[in-house]
């Protein structure tokens, strides 16, 4: 379990990736929560039976065919470990939970960070769930190079919003 030495997942430790076709159909929940911890709000929140978890300590597994991208799980996950991924018209989209000031705004340019906090490119905010709608956890969708959706896991805000 070397991710516990580093604090981030390496490529070979990532959960199975949804197919390109699936990603092009609809957004899908991608959960990076590999460790056995007593936690289960994600599965309890999913109305589509898309998350599998043998008991409260087992790590969650998503059935990408059942997931309809409703985002209920990402709104509640205390580990901020769920990311919504999507490919559309040659662009990649990652939706992540965000709890810092200033709150991101639609249209803003952001720096894209990978799991280690390194800059990997630039992106644009295309949608925001306002923090007051979700007990101060904002959801932010960022448009980026489609090859980056399995890398980008955080953002730093630079530009102004619309």
């Amino acid at each position: 379990m070397s991710y516990l030495v580093r604090g981030y997942l390496e490529e070979d430790e990532l959960p199975p990736k949804p197919s390109k076709e699936r990603l092009e159909k609809r957004a899908v929940a991608y959960i990076e929560c590999p460790q056995e911890i007593p936690c289960s709000p994600c599965i309890e929140s999913c109305d589509y039976g898309a998350i599998k978890m043998e008991n409260i300590n087992a790590p969650p597994e998503v059935d990408y065919e059942k997931c309809n991208g409703c985002m209920k799980c990402i709104r509640i996950c205390p580990g901020l470990a769920i990311f919504m991924l999507r490919l559309k018209n040659g662009k990649g989209y990652v939706t992540l939970a965000y709890e810092f000031l200033p709150w991101p705004k639609k249209g803003q340019e952001v720096i894209l960070l990978n799991r280690k906090g390194e800059e990997v490119g630039k992106g644009k905010v295309t949608w925001v769930l306002p923090p007051e709608k979700n007990d101060k956890t904002s959801l932010v969708r960022v448009e980026m190079d489609p090859d980056l959706i399995f890398d980008v896991r955080a953002i730093r805000i630079v530009g102004k919003g619309e």
């Binding site: 379990m1 604090g7 981030y8 580990g79 901020l80 906090g117 955080a154």
Partner: peptide, 17 residues
């Protein structure tokens, strides 16, 4: 030699550098 708390908590701050 390894992080003591939950991995997801570590990942949250690690990805912010």
């Amino acid at each position: 030699p390894r992080i003591g708390g939950y991995f997801v908590h570590a990942a949250k701050v690690r990805r912010l550098g």
